[in-house]
Amino acid sequence: MFSMDLLLGAVVLGVLLGCFYAAVSVGLSVSFGLLDVPHVAHPAFLVLASYGVYQLNESYDIDPLVAGLAITPLFFLFGLLAYRVYYETFEKRGSDAGVRGIAFFFGIAFIIEVLIILQFGVDQRSVSATYIGKSWRFGEFRIPIRQLVAFAVALGLTVLLAVYLSKTFMGRAIRAVAQDEEALRLMGANPVRIKQFAFGIATAVLGIAGALLIIVAPIEPTLDRAYIGRTFCVVVMAGLGSISGTLIAAIILGVAETIVLTMFGASWAPAISFAMLLAVLAVRPQGLLGR
């Protein structure tokens, strides 16, 4: 039966889940929202980071969050490289970049998926840490501590990125390049450099986000498909490039998912984010909260 208690529980869990969704989406909010790169491989990069964390945790028993931090510089470089290739082959040449750019990232996503399968197999993988497996009890319902850890770190990460983009010199330059590339060029800055750096940041964030992904639940190689819906839903709903919007949109998605899960069961859950995405695209493509 559906009760107020159950609803309240769902909302609390939904908010926790939502902040986690914000953390896995902020990178896309920068790369797709601000830089306009059709980055459909973002969720594949995310899952790749999770497997990196898994490997470090499995082989050296490193805490998943520390492992996530450790692979962050690697992902930063990976992002710089990925943008370079994208820029040189598509953006610079201009013509027909749309189709080929999208196909390029789609292909990359698929390659990552298959490489993970070849390396780790199709079975689910998880990490071990002291905070995984325990829960807090509040009378009727329990909140897993892993959810709380993911919530806190995710919130911190999202706020940190928002502050970085609004307060630091480089952050403002990134926002400026999204608004008016030409003006920035006239001021003597190199927009391509700034975009490349921004893409690096957007990818680096995935180190931590990937750690959160595997902390929250076990992962499998094709998990990126579900996250295409979630991350793009959040970013589009937020209004492209808005970080505070990302947080709010992610919480809306988190709450919606948990409520549907509680009321209709798990088999409908994967469709929620995609349905919301379609609805937003149909009704208000500029985003619910955006510019």
Partner: peptide, 17 residues
């Protein structure tokens, strides 16, 4: 174009569900 692409993925998942 990219929105069309993403929408088509969404469609596939929803119908499959």
């Amino acid at each position: 174009g990219i929105f069309f692409s993403i929408a088509t993925i969404a469609l596939a998942i929803i119908i499959e569900t």
